[in-house]
Amino acid sequence: MSLEVGGIRSLKDRFLIRDVLSGLRRLMDDRPAKLAMGYLSVMLVLAVIGPHIAPYPYDKILFSEAGQILRAQPPSLAHPLGTTSTGQDVLSRMIYGVRPTMITGLLGGLIIVTLGGMVGITAGYLGGQTDNVLMRITDFIYSIPLIPFAIVLVGVFGIDFFVTIFIIGGILWRGSARVLRSKVLQIKQRPYILMTKASGASTPYIILKHIVPNVGSMVILFFAMGIGYAIIAQAGLAFVGVSNPFIPSWGVMIRNAYRSGLVADAWWWSLPPGLLISTTVLSAIMLGRRFEVLSGQTDDAMLEMG
């Protein structure tokens, strides 16, 4: 299987690295994927350096030359996206908001795909009683309505940014677990896996070496979708007011705009963060989907989330 070059396995022969590299190469040939990747890269860069390039600190209250607070000023040259009702620069708040959004997406997506992958692959491959127990747990999680659950938990146990991400991740893994399980059920019947089994390979070996690579692109799709849904859910919770209001996320911005009563007039305040949420989510999901399509796997996973 692997080419031995002078006794040392070349890095490129490791299936994981090889697959990821060829996958990336394919993605770069695809226009929608390139667009989405470009967008997300910009967001990632902004998440890292955003606070250093924002024109004003996000919580700085701005005054006009006459000493008046600049309340809900429409867009102008000095403030390209206007100001909030408490006199803060909207553009700066937006740039600051990239970081919490990216943290939410990446951490949330990671939790979703880790839990979902572990449960789904274990249940699918082991089958029997393990499968039964794990799937009943998944059923139970399916019956928990995410937003009300998060409102109750966060409302009762206190408001914290990371708590909301863990709650979201702790619920939304259910979709990926179900789909990955059914995928593994199909794969484990393939002749080469049965052969490996017959030749005495251990269960962990088969799962890591043969099952995981085969569901890899689906795992990536669920990671991408997890990013998207975690961001949407977190923004929703921030909007309800059950996320830390002192972290300037986009959801909190929309909430502030809505609560100020100016939402219908001060469109420059609520529209940009909302549009950024949708474009970020769209890019993440599109990237995952293009990856899945290009890798030649089925597309039945799309709707099994949430």
Binding site: G228, A235, F239, I254, A264, G274, I277, S278
Partner: peptide
């Protein structure tokens, strides 16, 4: 589909 429901509602209100 990728827009949060509450934001869609806010666009409607605006």
């Amino acid at each position: 589909g990728t827009t949060p429901s509450f934001f869609l509602a806010i666009i409607g209100v605006i």
